[in-house]
C-alpha cells in the first residue's frame, strides 16, 4: 500500500467512525419520530419497519398520534406546568444566586471561605436523601405542588448559579468597583448598575443550565404531585401517559408526546450550543 492509499484508508475509517457515532447519538430520536407517525396497526407490524408503511409497503405516515397527544388535557397542562416551574426556578436561582455571588466574589467579609465551601458542598448533596424530610416540610407549610417544586429545585440550581457567578464576579476588575465608589455609588448600586449588566453572558449560561435541570427533574416532581395530578410536569406526565385512543400502552402517542417535548430542547441546544458547553465545563471545573 502506498502512502496516499494508506492516508485515504485512514480518512475513510475516520468518517465511518463519525457516522457510527452520529447514528448512535440520534437513532433513538429517529425511531421515536418514525414510531410516532405510525398507526397502532403499523406499530404492531412485525418485523418493525424503518419508515411507516402500509400493507403494500408504501410510505404511509399518520398524524393521528400527534392529534391524540395534543388533545390530551393532562399532557397540555403538564407543558404549561413545566414552563411555569422552569422559568420561575431559573429566575429565582439567578436573582438569589447573583446576590450571594456578588458578596462572595467582590466583597470583603469574615467567614467567606466557610460560606463558599458550604454552598459548594451543596452541589454534591444527594437530593434523594432529603426526599422524606422535604416532603414533611412541604406538607407542614401546606405549599401548592407547583410552589413546592420551585422551592425544592433550589437545592440543585442555587448552589450552581451561585458558584459559577461567583467565579465570574471574581474575574471582573476591581477598578470598576473602586471608580464607582469614588463617584459616590453605594456597593449595592455598583452591583446593580455596573457589575450585573457585565455578567449578562454568565447569567444566560447558568440560567440555561438551571432551566434544563428544572425542566428534566423527575424524583421531586413525581413525589410532590403524587396526589395532585393537575400539577404534574412533563416528565411525570410522560411517565404516566395513558393516552386516549389506544387500548394497550399507547406507544404511538407516547412517542408523539416525546417528540413534541423534545423539539424545544433541541432548538435550545442548537441556539445556545456554545453557552451550554461553557456552562457545563465551568460548573464541572469549578464545582
Amino acid at each position: 500500500m502506498t502512502r496516499t492509499q494508506r492516508r485515504k484508508l485512514k480518512k475513510v475509517l475516520f468518517w465511518i467512525v463519525i457516522v457510527v457515532v452520529f447514528v448512535y447519538l440520534v437513532f433513538p430520536f429517529y425511531w421515536a419520530l418514525n414510531s410516532s407517525l405510525k398507526t397502532e396497526d403499523q406499530l404492531m407490524m412485525t418485523p418493525a419497519t424503518f419508515i411507516p408503511r402500509d400493507t403494500e409497503g408504501n410510505f404511509a405516515p399518520t398524524l393521528q398520534n400527534y392529534k391524540g397527544a395534543l388533545s390530551d388535557p393532562t399532557f397540555i397542562r403538564s407543558i404549561w406546568n413545566s414552563t411555569v416551574v422552569g422559568f420561575t426556578t431559573t429566575a429565582l436561582a439567578l436573582i438569589v444566586g447573583s446576590f450571594s455571588a456578588f458578596a462572595l466574589g467582590k466583597l470583603r467579609f469574615k467567614g467567606k471561605k466557610p460560606t463558599l465551601y458550604l454552598i459548594l458542598s451543596m452541589t454534591m448533596f444527594p437530593q434523594v436523601t432529603v426526599l422524606s424530610g422535604l416532603y414533611a416540610v412541604i406538607t407542614a407549610l401546606n405549599l401548592h405542588p407547583i410552589l413546592s417544586m420551585i422551592l425544592s429545585y433550589m437545592i440543585f440550581t442555587l448552589p450552581f448559579t451561585t458558584w459559577v457567578l461567583t467565579t465570574f464576579f471574581k474575574k471582573l476588575p476591581i477598578e470598576l468597583m473602586q471608580s464607582a465608589q469614588v463617584d459616590g455609588a453605594t456597593p449595592f448600586q455598583t452591583f446593580y448598575h455596573i457589575l450585573l449588566p457585565l455578567t449578562a453572558p454568565a447569567l444566560v449560561t447558568t440560567g440555561l443550565l438551571a432551566f434544563i435541570a428544572a425542566w428534566n427533574e423527575y424524583l421531586f416532581a413525581l413525589t410532590f404531585t403524587s396526589i395532585a395530578p393537575q400539577s404534574r410536569t412533563i416528565p411525570v406526565a410522560i411517565s404516566l401517559f395513558s393516552g386516549s385512543i389506544a387500548r394497550q400502552e399507547p406507544f404511538g402517542e407516547i412517542m408523539a408526546g416525546a417528540i413534541i417535548v423534545t423539539i424545544p430542547v433541541v432548538l435550545l441546544v442548537l441556539f445556545f450550543q456554545r453557552k451550554i458547553v461553557a456552562g457545563l465545563t465551568a460548573g464541572a471545573v469549578k464545582g
Binding site: L25, V26, P235, A258, Q273
Partner: peptide
C-alpha cells in the same frame, strides 16, 4: 457533532427512557 452530543444530555431523561422502553419491546415490534 458537538451540538449533536448535547442532545442526549439535554433531553428529559424520562422521555428518552420511554423511547428506549419502546425500542426494547419484547417481540419484533
Amino acid at each position: 457533532m458537538r451540538t449533536t452530543m448535547l442532545i442526549p444530555w439535554a433531553v428529559i431523561t424520562v422521555v428518552s427512557a420511554r423511547i428506549w422502553e419502546w425500542m426494547l419491546e419484547p417481540g419484533s415490534s
